[in-house]
Design a protein around this nucleic acid. Structure first.
Length: 194
DNA sequence: CACTAGATTTTCT
DNA sequence: GAAAATCTAGTGG
């Protein structure tokens, strides 16, 4: 299946967020690991108080201000990494946080990285999926359309595919906005969408 | 199952 | 110096 091209990302953040559901996130170090994206959150730039870019560019968030298609990785709580897909045109400062995937390829490698025997709770959370795929700040600034280490591919959606929205998780501002997108009924979410 | 506390360090005020 | 787009282990029903 084809890799998503630059113009996919250069669009409205909420639209990109919704359309990322059901796509395949691929990460290659030695072995190819991948999973279907089942949960994301949109962070809409200067108008969104929960976005890192709300108060303008800093050392940490400068990749968010690149053009859509870049990969923004940051360290959270001193321990875990989170991956984002930058959206819209240069200088907008918007991105989509990938929160959970359904593991598809390289499951043994992911289990080893997570030190887990089961496939369950392997990648059902933003920090967990980065650990499973081996995503660190080294990948901050990669460009999904032409990177040889991380990219996103087209994938067929199941016939029962439905999108559900809910409030974003783990933030203290902008909590009323329904900008968390999930595949309805997926057993691979970080938590149910009620 | 639900809830709570603790880990740990970068980043920004 | 406080907060942070989180996770795990531990406790108690």
């Amino acid at each position: 299946m084809g890799r998503l091209e630059s113009d996919f990302y250069l669009r409205d953040t909420l639209l990109v967020a919704e359309e990322l559901l059901g796509k395949r996130l691929v990460c290659c170090h030695r072995t190819r690991c991948s999973g279907q994206i089942v949960e994301v959150e949109a962070y809409h730039g200067r108008c969104d108080p929960a976005a890192h870019s709300f108060r303008g560019a800093t050392t940490r968030n400068k990749v968010m201000f690149q053009e859509g298609g870049h990969c923004y990785v940051y360290l959270i709580y001193g321990m875990y990494h989170c991956v984002n897909v930058v959206t819209e045109t240069k200088d907008v400062g918007a991105a989509v946080l990938i929160r959970a995937i359904e593991p598809l390829e390289g499951i043994q490698t992911m289990q080893r990285r997570r030190e887990l025997k089961s496939a369950h709770s392997l990648a059902d959370g933003p920090g967990k999926l980065c650990q499973a795929l081996g995503i660190t700040k080294k990948l901050n600034g990669e460009f999904f359309p032409d990177s040889d280490r991380i990219w996103i591919e087209e994938m067929d959606r199941s016939p029962s595919f439905k999108v559900q929205t809910s409030p974003r998780i783990g933030i203290s501002k902008g909590t009323e906005l329904p900008w968390r997108f999930t595949i309805q009924g997926s057993p691979w979410l970080s938590r149910p969408s009620s």
